[in-house]
Amino acid sequence: MNAPPAPGELAREPASGAVLAASRFSTHAQARGEQLIAWRERVGHVVDVVPSRGQIEGGFRGQIDRYAAAGFSFTDCTTDALVLERPVARVSTDRRRDFAFHLYAQGDSGLTTGMRRKRSADETPTRIIAMDMNQPFRVERPACRVLSVFVPQETVDANLPYAESIHGQGLAPHTPLAQLSLAHALALADTLPQLDAAQAAEAMQVAAQLLLAAYRGEARLGERGRAAAQAAVMNQVRRYVDANLHHADLTPSTVVAALQLKRATIYRWFEQEGGLGAYIRHRRLREAADDLVRFPHLLVTEIAYGLGFNSASDFTRAFRRAFGMSPLDMRARALELRRATA
């Protein structure tokens, strides 16, 4: 079941007609005595905040960014210590039936209680924990930054037998899938503001499949888990390449070494791009095209050398092969279009 919109949420609609809802809230602008109350009102459509006199009088720092598309949602939340409850009365009266996977980028999950648990269940705070919104819980957590992926119940049920059994269950933080899930969530927090609805939904689905694969505890990933892991790693590579385009020593070997990945696997995954080397070259050329327009007074040679090309002639030949025109012709055409639309 789709999550209801958060208060104050805005919808962003790209040309495709899909909708990405996005919102931001902070207690910073509130008077000190009103900050915790404002936070309760903000998140109260999902969970109850248990107030303390000290927090009301002393103030409460909290900020949350939320994105939602295609039944999935993602939040990036930083708060002071607080107590959260989702009592059975709330569960019985609202319509929340998704799963919330909390990934702690700073701090940990604190103490989670109020659930049916095995006597042997580990109560140690964890970096990743799953919560079934169809079951009650109480969380006492320290100051933290937590990234949350909300996944529709039908998606979880389709991937996990006895899905309700993962409620309140943490993941061992040092497993490869747990580490990949946290890295992907951190990347989502950085990139979601630039994505359209379709891209955002795909990125959140990848996050969900990584987490579900981790909770399945598969030593060998199933098809969906493998696809999600591949997508997450390839996105990690792409982000690294984009962040280092202006470094002359950026090569396939340096990428693999920096990210500690298996060379043969990464090379195979980028075969459709013509290879990782070809992908790096294409991204540099695409960045050069943007620079030619953004900086019309910058010499072509400066752009070429700044993006790791050995000479202006090598750059011009590669640019012409990629885009069918020289760098100067492309710059002139772009400036004409800009004047025409000014």
Rank of each mutant, 00 (worst) to 15 (best):
E41R: 05
N2P: 04
Q230L: 10
L307M: 09
D314S: 15
A22C: 08
R263G: 11
Q169H: 10
R12V: 12
A228S: 09
A197H: 00
H184T: 05
Y104R: 07
L10H: 14
I166V: 14
A183G: 10
L328H: 12
Y104W: 06
V256N: 03
T93S: 15
T155H: 06
Q135S: 10
I303Q: 03
T75M: 07
R224V: 13
R116M: 15
R97F: 03
P142D: 12
K118V: 11
R317G: 00
R61C: 04
T113E: 12
Q209R: 14
Q153S: 14
R268T: 11
D80Y: 04
A248P: 01
F99K: 06
P193E: 11
V151A: 05
H247D: 08
R239Q: 07
S92I: 03
L221S: 05
I166C: 02
Q230H: 12
N310R: 09
T79E: 09
S109V: 13
G168L: 13
A21M: 11
Q272Y: 00
T265W: 02
A172E: 05
G33M: 00
R12W: 05
R141K: 15
A11Y: 01
A258E: 11
L299F: 05
V19N: 09
R24S: 04
V146I: 07
F60I: 02
T124Y: 06
D291F: 09
V255M: 04
E41T: 08
E287H: 13
L261E: 13
I266R: 03
V300D: 09
R119N: 10
P14V: 14
G59L: 02
L177F: 01
L186A: 12
L20R: 01
R138I: 10
L195F: 04
A143W: 06
E287G: 09
P142K: 09
R220D: 14
A68I: 13
V206G: 02
L195E: 15
R216P: 08
T27V: 08
A229V: 05
L250R: 01
P193K: 12
H247T: 03
A22F: 11
D122F: 03
A15D: 15
R116F: 10
A342H: 13
A289S: 09
M234G: 03
N310A: 08
D80L: 01
A288C: 04
L307Y: 07
G225N: 07
D329F: 01
E123V: 13
M131C: 04
I37M: 01
A340F: 04
S311T: 11
L299R: 07
R119W: 12
R42V: 02
A121K: 05
A278V: 00
R119P: 07
Q30I: 01
W39N: 00
S92H: 08
H167D: 10
S311L: 00
V300G: 04
A334M: 13
A248H: 10
Q169R: 14
A340T: 03
D76L: 09
T124C: 05
Q179I: 05
L195C: 15
A81F: 02
P14Q: 08
Q272L: 04
V91C: 06
R145T: 14
A18R: 15
G308Q: 04
S26N: 07
A69Y: 08
A258D: 06
D122N: 11
